[in-house]
Design a protein around this nucleic acid. Structure first.
Length: 572
RNA sequence: CGGGGCGUAGCGCAGAGGUAGCGCACCUGUCUUGGGCACAGGGGGUCGCUGGUUCAACUCCAGUCGCCCCGACCA
C-alpha cells in the first residue's frame, strides 16, 4: 500500500473534545472520526484494525465450537415486551416507529432475538447444545457517552448465545468461552484479568468479566496478587476484619447531638472513632422499606445488597420517604425502636459493642448500643464495599484496587429468558423443558480503544503486531533521491510478495513529517531508506525501541529474514 | 436528569454594536528533505439555528439545536 494513496488524515493537534488518550490518538492518527456524540466512523486504518480484532475473535469462537450468524439490528418491540425488558431496559434503548407506527428498537443486545429465532426449530435434546454468535453493531443510548470508543452509543460487539439441556452442559460451554476469551486477550498481548462479576440486570447465576488494565478504565476491580483472587467492586468480598471489644456492656443512653448528622460529624462531636458508630441506611424496593446497617468506617455496596435481597429495583429512600416512615431526618435514623421494617446488617456489625446509632429522633443519638440487648438483628450478610488494602477472602493478603476496561463478559443465564419466551425443547423422556442458556459478549470496537490505552507513548500508538493496521512501514526519507525511491519500492514489493503487510511512505513531505506520522499510527517495524543507503544500508527500527539496526540492502534474503525475525519477536 | 462551559475557515483558537482575524492544514511557484522545512503568492466564513432590540447584530436579549465537563447512572 502506498501512503500517498492511503486515506489516513493525521492531525498535528489534539481534537478539543478528546477526553481520553485512546480517543485523541485514534482521531489524530486518522483511524476514526466522530460524527455525533458517541458515534464514530472508522476510516481505512481503523477499519483494518477492526477487521483484525474481528478476525481474532471469529477464529477463537469457531475453535470453541460456536457458529456465526447474523441477526437484525432492528428488532420488533413485541419480543422485548414479552420479556418485560422493553420497559426494564429503560431509556438506554434506542426506540423508533416505522411508517405504520409499529414500534422497534435498535438492539442493545440480542437475547430476545436469538431465543425467538431458535425456539421453533431447535426442538429436540438431540440438537443441543448449540452455541451461536454474531459480530454486529449495537445501540445503547448512554446517559453520557464519553471516552471515545469506550462508551459510545453505537458500537461493535461479538455476542454469543448457547442453549443446553443441563447446567453441566452450560458449564462446559461457559468454560470453553472463558478460555476463548483468554486466548483473544493473549493474542493481542493485552494485560488483563478475568474477574468474578455481578450479573446485574441481565440476570443469571454466574459471571466473569474480562478486564483490560488501564488507569483510565471505568471498572473498579480488586485483585489479590498472592493467590489470584479477583472480582469487580460490585461483587468483591473480603475476609472479616471484625473489631470485637472484650468490654462489659454499658448502659444504653440517648444523648443530644444537635446538628450532627454524618458519621464524620458524629465521630468528631463524641470524640470517638468512626468504627464505634453503626450507620443505618434506608432503602426502598419492591417489598417495601429495608434498613441496612454497617460499621461507620465502611460503605454499603448497593449491588451486593440488591443481589442479596433479589431485588434489582432497590434504591435509596428519599429524605421525604424516610421522614414519612420513621418521623426522623436521615441523619438521625437508627435501628432501635424500628418496627415492621426488614433490617439487614453487614457482618462488620456482628461483634461490635457499646457503639453509637441514630436516635430515630431528630438531634439525638444512642450511645453504648448493643444488639441483642437493645434491638434485634436477624440477618447478617456481606454488603460492604471492599477497598484497597482489605483482606483477600481466600488467602487473607491485602487486596489491590485496580482500574480496568471491561472488554468481555460471560454469563450463565439459566432459564430466565427461555421461560419468559416459552422457549422449550423436547427431552429424551418426551417432556418439554426450557433451554438452559448462556450468553457471552465481547466489545470489539472497545477493544481497539482498550489496546491503545495500554500501548502508547508520547509519540503515538504502539500497536501489538496482531492488530496493527500494517506490520511494516517503509519510509523513503527523501523522494528526490532516486536510490531511496527505488530501494523503497523494491523492499515494499518484496515484503508484499511474502505476505507481510507493508505501507510504503512515498509522500513528498519532509522527513520529520514522515517519521512523526509513522510513530503516531504505531506500525511495529519501520524500515528507513535514507542517507545510509550511500553505504548500501537500510535501517530497521521497532516502534517500541529507540535502537535501530542497519542491514545491507544487497542481500535480500537476509533483509527478509531480519524483518521476519524482528516481527516474530516483537513483544510489547 | 441536576450543575457548569462552549458553538467564529477542514483542525486548534483569538476578537468585537459599525462590513471578520491568527496558527496549522489546503492551492500555485521556488526551495528543501534524518524528527511535523523555508520564502512568496492565493483560495476558503450566511460567526450553530430562529426570532427580538437597534440606523446597524457575529457582538446585546430570548428561544432552540448541537458539543463538552462534573454529578447521578451504567448488559
Amino acid at each position: 500500500m502506498y501512503w500517498s494513496k492511503l486515506y489516513a488524515p493525521t492531525l498535528k493537534e489534539s481534537p478539543s473534545d478528546a477526553d481520553i488518550k485512546s480517543a485523541e490518538l485514534l482521531i489524530r492518527g486518522g483511524f476514526i472520526r466522530k460524527s455525533a456524540s458517541g458515534v464514530f466512523s472508522y476510516l481505512p486504518l481503523g477499519t483494518r484494525v477492526l477487521q483484525k480484532i474481528t478476525q481474532i475473535v471469529r477464529e477463537e469462537m469457531n475453535i470453541a465450537g460456536a457458529q456465526e450468524l447474523l441477526m437484525p439490528i432492528m428488532q420488533p418491540a413485541e419480543i422485548w415486551k414479552t420479556t418485560g425488558r422493553w420497559d426494564d431496559y429503560g431509556p438506554e434503548m434506542m426506540k423508533f416507529r416505522d411508517r405504520n407506527d409499529r414500534e422497534f428498537t435498535l438492539g442493545p443486545t440480542h437475547e430476545e432475538m436469538i431465543t425467538t429465532l431458535v425456539k421453533d426449530e431447535l426442538r429436540s435434546y438431540k440438537q443441543l447444545p448449540v452455541n451461536l454468535y454474531q459480530i454486529n453493531t449495537k445501540y445503547r443510548d448512554e446517559i453520557r457517552p464519553r471516552f471515545g470508543l469506550l462508551r459510545g452509543r453505537e458500537f461493535i460487539m461479538k455476542d454469543a448465545y448457547s442453549f443446553h439441556t443441563s447446567p453441566e452442559s452450560l458449564d462446559q460451554t461457559y468454560k470453553d468461552m472463558y478460555n476463548a476469551y483468554s486466548r483473544i486477550c493473549d493474542r493481542m498481548n493485552m494485560k488483563y484479568v478475568a474477574v468474578e462479576a455481578d450479573t446485574g440486570t441481565i440476570g443469571g447465576s454466574n459471571s466473569h468479566e474480562f478486564t483490560a488494565f488501564a488507569e483510565s478504565g471505568e471498572s473498579d476491580i480488586l485483585v489479590c496478587e498472592k493467590c489470584g483472587y479477583s472480582a469487580t467492586q460490585e461483587k468483591a468480598e473480603c475476609s472479616d476484619d471484625q473489631k470485637s471489644a472484650d468490654e462489659p456492656l454499658k448502659t444504653l443512653t440517648l444523648v443530644e447531638t444537635p446538628n450532627v448528622r454524618t458519621v464524620d460529624e458524629l465521630a468528631k462531636f463524641l470524640k470517638i472513632e468512626k468504627d464505634k458508630i453503626v450507620k443505618s441506611m434506608v432503602f426502598t424496593g419492591k417489598n417495601g422499606y429495608v434498613m441496612a446497617l454497617i460499621r461507620g468506617d465502611l460503605e454499603i455496596n448497593i449491588p451486593k445488597l440488591k443481589s442479596y435481597l433479589g431485588d434489582q429495583t432497590l434504591r435509596f429512600a428519599t429524605a421525604e420517604e424516610v421522614f414519612e416512615k420513621f418521623s426522623s431526618q436521615i441523619g438521625y435514623i437508627g435501628p432501635i425502636g424500628v418496627k415492621a421494617v426488614r433490617i439487614v446488617s453487614d457482618n462488620s456489625v456482628k461483634n461490635l459493642k457499646n457503639y453509637v446509632v441514630g436516635g430515630l429522633k431528630n438531634e439525638y443519638h444512642y450511645i453504648n448500643v448493643n444488639h441483642e440487648r437493645d434491638y434485634k438483628i436477624n440477618e447478617y450478610t456481606d454488603i460492604r464495599i471492599v477497598v484497597d488494602g482489605d483482606k483477600c477472602p481466600k488467602c487473607g493478603s491485602p487486596l489491590k484496587l485496580k482500574k480496568g476496561i471491561e472488554v468481555g463478559q460471560v454469563f450463565k443465564l439459566g432459564t430466565k429468558y427461555s421461560e419468559k419466551l416459552s422457549a422449550t425443547y423436547v427431552d429424551s423422556d418426551g417432556s418439554e423443558k426450557y433451554y438452559v442458556m448462556g450468553c457471552y459478549g465481547w466489545g470489539v470496537s472497545r477493544t481497539m480503544a482498550a489496546v491503545v490505552e495500554q500501548f502508547h507513548d508520547e509519540k503515538g500508538i504502539i500497536w501489538p503486531k496482531a492488530i496493527a493496521p500494517f506490520e511494516v512501514v517503509v519510509t523513503i526519507v527523501n523522494t528526490a533521491m532516486q536510490d531511496q525511491v527505488r530501494v523503497g519500492h523494491e523492499i515494499h514489493e518484496m515484503l508484499e510478495k511474502h505476505e507481510i503487510e507493508v505501507l510504503l511512505d512515498d509522500r513528498d513531505v519532509s522527513a520529520g513529517f514522515k517519521f512523526k506520522d509513522a510513530d503516531l499510527i504505531g506500525i511495529p517495524l519501520r524500515i528507513t531508506c535514507g542517507k545510509s543507503l550511500e553505504n548500501g544500508d537500510i535501517e530497521l527500527k521497532l516502534r517500541n525501541s529507540d535502537k535501530s539496526s542497519k542491514i545491507k540492502i544487497e542481500d535480500r534474503d537476509s533483509v527478509l529474514r531480519s524483518v521476519k525475525t524482528l516481527l516474530e519477536n516483537y513483544k510489547l
